[in-house]
Design a protein around this nucleic acid. Structure first.
Length: 420
RNA sequence: GGAGAGGUGGCUGAGCGGUUUAAAGCGGCGGUCUUGAAAACCGUUGACUGUUAAAGGUCCGGGGGUUCGAAUCCCUCCCUCUCCGCCA
């Protein structure tokens, strides 16, 4: 959520940073400003009336103590109407507050000024390329053919159990998935993240806090009889650990990691990546989350990116780092780097991690504060990244480490994890 | 699922219709003392809104109600704890 004060005081700057997303936010911002002004006008009048009521009520208390019952009764009669008026106007203010809040909750984060302009993924900036994109002297299989041949994957039976876009890993495949999870968690432990096993369902407040609600409900699986949603990412529970909390400055930064399954309806992506592990309704992910002081934000994003990259380095997978352009940056993020892994079957790079800085956008929704150096209360900044999407890593491992015979030659570190 | 207890400022905790602008303690901050520190003592210290600064307004789990006036009474929902039942 953007700061209404900032919108009031620095409207043009906010609009400029929003418009980097590739559409014009002037109208919405103007509507917000108008509503905010209306609200303040009504509020001034209302507060005057409240002041009057408060002091008169106090007077009644005093009169009664002095035994002046009659005077008190007269005053009481006179206050009845004022009290009614206040109640009425209070209702109006609440309504305006709610619609203002809804508008604010529906506006995406203002982007940092170094986020490149652009409409789609094609306009992202390639920051660096790590490792060599493997070219095979045979035609590499994709991870589905390979996985099914090896008995690791069984999408037909997954369809029987649940439906399309669900994975079923069997035998060595299931073990490989578990090895990857363990490897990732161990690496992030070394990087100083506290391991967490959070709830896999979250309530409405939590999802509003991180930004999935109210705008993107159609992307979520929702329980029918309870106000719970299946988490679309561990970002939700991890970032919500400290919702409505005051953090001691010396406890920052706070760093958490968790492995969780993630559940996404993938509404609106019919026909996209229908094959394999790339886009499923359920997938495993190891997430890393940080709560930091604002002044360290950019540095913390760079280090978060390194923490995520480290997994790809350890697995010896070729990848590249891209900075997302405005149009491709997610709703809550102010700036995002993606890690894209090389997929030999399609000879392309595919997103495997997304590392974002959210500035105080989430913290404001979540009400997470700390006291800064000047003892001023301030919102913390949040960041998160995938470290990594396990399903996509699984696919990348299969495709990158296959040989002509259709067997896997895994890097040493993975072999070690498979043994344990 | 049944019965009971409870949710109050960074923390502990009193208040249970009207000088409460939420007591007190802890913690924090400043000071006195000290070579320095600790202890002790003195002062200060909730959040949000608003303002040049103030005044004022809002906030005692969430929502609604009663009243001139609600932390306090009523309704409702949520959460925590104890006991019972069921259960991995």
């Amino acid at each position: 959520m953007l700061d209404i004060k900032l919108i009031r005081e620095d409207k043009n700057n906010i609009i400029e940073r929003l418009n980097r997303r590739g559409r014009d936010f002037t109208d919405v911002i103007d509507r917000i400003i108008k509503k905010d002004q209306d609200r303040r006008l009504i509020l001034i009048e209302l507060e005057g009336k409240k002041q009057q009521l408060n002091s008169s009520s106090k007077e009644i208390g005093i009169l009664k103590q002095e035994g002046e019952e009659e005077k008190a009764d007269i005053l009481k009669q006179n206050l009845k109407q004022l009290s009614e008026e206040i109640k009425e106007e209070d209702k109006n203010i609440t309504e305006i507050d709610q619609s203002l809040k809804f508008l604010l909750l529906s506006i995406p984060n203002a982007l940092l000024l170094d986020v490149p302009l652009g409409k789609s993924a094609e306009d992202n900036t390639i920051i660096k390329v790590v490792g060599e994109a493997k070219l095979f002297d045979f035609k590499p299989k994709d991870h589905v053919d390979l996985g099914e041949a090896l008995g690791y994957l069984d999408f037909d039976r997954a369809g029987k159990i649940a439906g399309s876009r669900f994975p079923l890993l069997m035998g060595e495949g299931a073990k490989l998935e578990r090895a990857l999870i363990n490897l990732m968690l161990d690496l992030q432990a070394v990087n100083g993240y506290t391991e967490v096993v959070p709830p896999f369902l979250a309530n409405q407040a939590s999802l509003t806090g991180t930004g999935q609600l109210p705008k993107f409900e159609e992307d979520l699986f929702k329980c029918r009889d309870d106000e719970y949603y299946l988490i679309p990412t561990a970002e939700v529970p991890l970032t919500n650990i400290h919702r409505n909390e005051f953090i001691k400055a010396e406890d920052l930064p706070l760093k958490y990691t968790a492995y969780t399954p993630c559940f996404r309806r993938e509404a609106g992506s019919y026909g996209k990546d229908t094959r394999g592990l790339i886009r499923n309704h359920q997938f495993n992910k190891v997430e890393i989350v940080k709560l930091v002081k604002p002044q360290n934000a950019e540095k913390e994003l760079e280090s978060l990116l390194r923490d995520a990259s480290m997994v790809l380095d350890a697995l010896e997978l070729p990848y590249r780092v891209v900075k997302l352009c405005g149009g491709d940056t997610g709703f809550s993020a102010a700036k995002t780097y993606d890690l894209e892994v090389w997929m030999p079957s399609s000879e392309s790079y595919r997103e495997i991690s997304s590392c974002s800085l959210f500035t105080d956008f989430q913290a404001r929704r979540l009400n997470i504060k700390y006291k800064d150096e000047n003892k001023k209360t301030n919102f913390i900044y949040t960041l998160n990244g995938s470290g990594l999407a396990v399903g996509r890593t699984f696919a990348a491992v299969l495709e990158n480490f296959q040989n002509a015979a259709g067997k896997l030659i895994l890097p040493e570190i993975l072999q070690k994890y498979l043994k344990n």
